[in-house]
């Protein structure tokens, strides 16, 4: 049973500003796909379009969940969450004045996830023992690394089929970035997730990617089927890494 994501010819923007132009991508079942690009190129907008938070002006976004296809365009965010698509937002976006445990429970706000919340919260504490120690602490008072763990754990509370991760490296020290990327890789393997990750940190992101796309000024500039294809591409070296 596949859990994949197909984006076809999506255009999106805010008001008169077009941010994304004719973007097509494919996230095959059980793979990790990275969306690479520097600031302001439309990565977060594309992720928001998938979650139904921002509505594309044209194009199709189709999620295949357990072999069944759903067109996400026009669906409300809560309906998309119900399908089993979870987002780890950029900058973590925790609920700072709620406790760690309350943050996790909000990850299971939907009725579909609620029924399993006890089991899932145990999974989360098992995966991130640090969170179990701090379950009564306010989320806003934790360090950035712990907050990133909580943001990931909160998304896992849905027991998602497809995990969207938006810029997990933002505001983290280099060592923590590589740890976070490792964690995403481990979670993907453990929960058999399909992962789409938007990231600026090329070298870190490409480590765990099965394939990747480079987005420049709202357009897909390069599509690579493997990490090597990205590493050895002159275009990327020139425009993205500046080498």
């Amino acid at each position: 049973m596949g859990n994949s994501l197909t984006i076809e010819g999506v255009n999106a923007g805010y008001g008169a500003v077009r941010v994304i132009e004719n973007v097509s991508m494919n996230v095959a079942s059980g793979t990790t796909v990275v969306l690479l690009g520097t600031n302001g190129n439309g990565k977060s907008t594309l992720i928001k379009c998938i979650m139904g938070i921002c509505r594309p002006t044209s194009g199709r976004i189709v999620a295949e969940i357990d072999g069944e296809k759903h067109d996400l365009v026009g669906m409300k965010p809560e309906a998309i969450v119900d399908l089993g698509i979870a987002l780890v937002p950029e900058g973590r976006r925790l609920f700072p004045r709620l406790t760690v445990e309350e943050n996790l429970l909000l990850g299971a706000f939907r009725p579909v996830a609620r029924v399993q919340r006890k089991k899932n919260i145990d999974f989360c504490y098992e995966t991130f023992p640090r969170l179990a120690e701090r379950r009564r602490q306010l989320a806003g008072s934790m360090s950035g690394g712990e907050q990133q763990m909580l943001a990931l754990a909160r998304a896992l509370m849905l027991a998602p089929k497809i995990l969207l991760v938006d810029e997990p490296s933002v505001g983290l020290a280099p060592l923590l970035v590589s740890r976070t990327i490792d964690t995403i890789r481990d979670l993907k393997a453990k929960y058999q997730l399909t992962v789409l990750m938007a990231e600026q940190n090329f070298t870190q992101a490409i480590r765990i990617a099965d394939s990747g796309y480079v987005i420049v000024h709202g357009r897909i500039a390069f599509e690579g089927r493997s990490a090597d294809a990205h590493n050895n591409n002159d275009l990327i070296r020139k425009f993205y890494l500046g080498l």
Binding site: M51, I53, P77, E78, I80, V81, D82, A86, L87, P89, R93, L94, F95, P96, R97, L98, E102, L106, G107, F109, R110, A113, R154, L158
Partner: peptide, 15 residues
């Protein structure tokens, strides 16, 4: 409470 703390995060949790 989720809306008060972070509306976008609330939305992505399916609130």
């Amino acid at each position: 409470a989720a809306i008060r703390d972070d509306e976008l995060a609330a939305e992505s949790c399916g609130v």
